[in-house]
């Protein structure tokens, strides 16, 4: 499963952040912001229009991500189910 598909208020565990294409600076930044293997994430809110962007809690911090950005984050299967 990917972070973009995680339902609201369901905890998930990050497996990895995948590059989309060579030199994916968005993927690199996501890793720097703490989206790394083993980290717990949770979607705490979604935007008012088209459920976009999503607000993701990672560690002690909340980041607003668009779904296309969140789709780079792969979650461990089974976690949060």
């Amino acid at each position: 499963m990917r972070l973009a598909e995680l339902p609201r208020r369901v905890p998930g565990i990050v497996a990895s952040v995948e590059d989309q294409g060579p030199n994916d600076s968005i993927a690199r930044r996501l890793r720097e912001l703490g989206f790394v293997a083993g980290e717990q994430v949770e979607v705490v809110a979604v935007g008012p229009m088209g459920s976009e962007p999503i607000l993701v809690q990672v560690g002690f911090t909340r980041f607003a991500l668009r779904r296309a950005e969140a789709a780079r984050v792969r979650l461990l299967d089974g976690a949060g189910a």
Partner: peptide
């Protein structure tokens, strides 16, 4: 192409 949001609240 794609734009990044990546905004800390």
């Amino acid at each position: 192409g794609e734009h990044a949001l990546l905004l800390e609240l």
